[in-house]
Simulated scan of single mutants.
Amino acid sequence: MQSKNEQITSLIELNEELENYFSNTIIPQLFVDANLILRKFTPPAMKQFKLELEFLGKPMEEIQENFRYPTIIDNIKAVIATGKILEKEIQTTDMGWYQMNILPYRVLKENKTNGVIITFVDITARIRDLKEQEKLIAEHELLLDTIAHDIKNPILGLSLTIQMLKKLPEKSMEKFPVLLNNVESGLIAMKKVISELIDSRWEKQRQEASAELLDIGNILEDVRLTLAPQILESGAIIRQDIRCPEITFIRRKLRSVIYNLLSNAIKYCPADRNPEIMVKCSGEKEFVVISITDNGIGMSPEEQKSVFEKFQRVKMNYEGYGVGLYLVNTVVTAAGGKIELESTPGQGSEFKVYLKHAGGSC
């Protein structure tokens, strides 16, 4: 048994360690007690939220404006009441983005929550970069597909014309063979230019975009951060059940698939309800199956038949260009996979994406 002096000494040492930690950590952190009084904060929090030493001991409601996040007190109360950790991406009124974690501070001896510790990680730059990356990926996929699609028909038509001209009699046109050869030479040159253009422009990216072992949960988290503004504005609730966490695939393509499906699940939801989305991942034979289920507007059987077609928009009163699901289907089928769709008008949809896993099933 420790003597009273030994116990006091231990408490002093623990308090000094806590003070030392709060003084030297590089993460903005706050300690708020069960009465919503600000008890401690780290120097980065002082700088980030313009906190002053005289704020210590003050109720949070007197200084909540410093955090530029209106519901912070409600979030603290919820954690104190439930004893559960709260993790969420928040946007402050100055348009910054943070990963906010509110952890219950439990007094084990009394078995109760006596306050919370709050951490803030600035993710503004990461969200901006992810959004820009997603935009570039979409533009790249669309450009490459458009080149392949739109140039194919003119070349085919020109080839057929040349074949027909070759079968026609020369009549008395002395220059006809020369003109024909010029057309044929032009066609060959066109093919060569297009081939070199595509090869030189995308060769580096093709080399970089090799398949790798990916953590599906991490990819989903990147997509959630990219869609953070839409999630916040719509009040979307996204749940996940990842039972097959890894897949060997090209990172940007997997992100594009999940991004487009999640984005649609948020977008195509009636105005009178908040999007509720469940993301599941499981193994099925040689496939990794990613399913995304929503409570959105749903689709009729007729709409489901054309939803994967290029530039086909089944709901004209929603923003978009009709290429998202087309690109998803293109990526999945090109990789030897498939997509299944179940949907009921007014009740929601479920997209099941089957991706072959080079490493075998989960």
Rank of each mutant, 00 (worst) to 15 (best):
M1V: 01
Q7C: 04
E13H: 10
L14G: 10
L14N: 15
E17L: 08
N20K: 02
Q29K: 13
L30P: 10
L36F: 08
I37N: 10
R39I: 06
K40A: 11
F41D: 00
T42K: 13
A45D: 03
F49E: 09
L51D: 03
L56G: 01
P59K: 07
I63V: 11
I63L: 15
E65V: 06
Y69C: 05
I72S: 08
I72K: 01
D74L: 09
K77A: 02
A78N: 12
A78H: 01
L86F: 05
L86P: 04
E89Y: 02
Q91A: 06
Q91E: 14
T93H: 04
D94S: 07
Q99V: 04
Q99I: 04
P104S: 06
Y105V: 06
K109E: 15
K112E: 15
I118K: 00
T119K: 04
V121G: 02
D122K: 01
D122F: 00
D122M: 00
I123P: 00
I123W: 13
I127C: 01
I127G: 01
Q133N: 13
L136V: 09
E139H: 14
H140A: 12
E141Q: 10
L143D: 03
L143K: 01
I147N: 06
D150M: 09
I151V: 14
N153H: 10
L158R: 05
S159V: 13
L160K: 15
L160V: 15
L160H: 14
Q163N: 10
M164I: 13
P169M: 06
P169V: 09
E170C: 02
S172P: 04
S172F: 12
F176P: 03
L180V: 02
N181Y: 05
N182G: 11
V183E: 06
S185L: 12
G186D: 11
I188K: 09
M190F: 13
S195N: 15
E196A: 13
L197Q: 11
I198L: 14
I198F: 08
S200P: 00
K204Q: 14
R206Y: 07
Q207M: 15
L214S: 07
L214I: 06
D215A: 07
I216Y: 11
N218D: 15
N218I: 12
I219G: 10
E221D: 12
A228H: 01
L232F: 09
E233P: 02
G235F: 04
I238W: 01
R239C: 03
R239G: 08
Q240S: 14
I242M: 07
R243P: 00
I247F: 03
T248G: 00
T248Q: 11
I250K: 05
I250A: 02
K253M: 08
L254P: 07
Y259D: 15
N260G: 04
L262K: 00
C269P: 05
P270V: 07
D272M: 05
N274W: 02
P275W: 12
E276H: 13
E284K: 09
E284Q: 09
K285A: 11
F287C: 03
F287P: 09
V288R: 14
I290T: 04
G298N: 02
E303H: 09
Q304V: 07
K305Y: 05
Y318L: 08
G322F: 02
L327V: 03
T330I: 03
V331N: 06
T333P: 03
A335G: 13
G336S: 10
E340N: 11
S343T: 02
G346T: 11
F351T: 03
K356M: 11
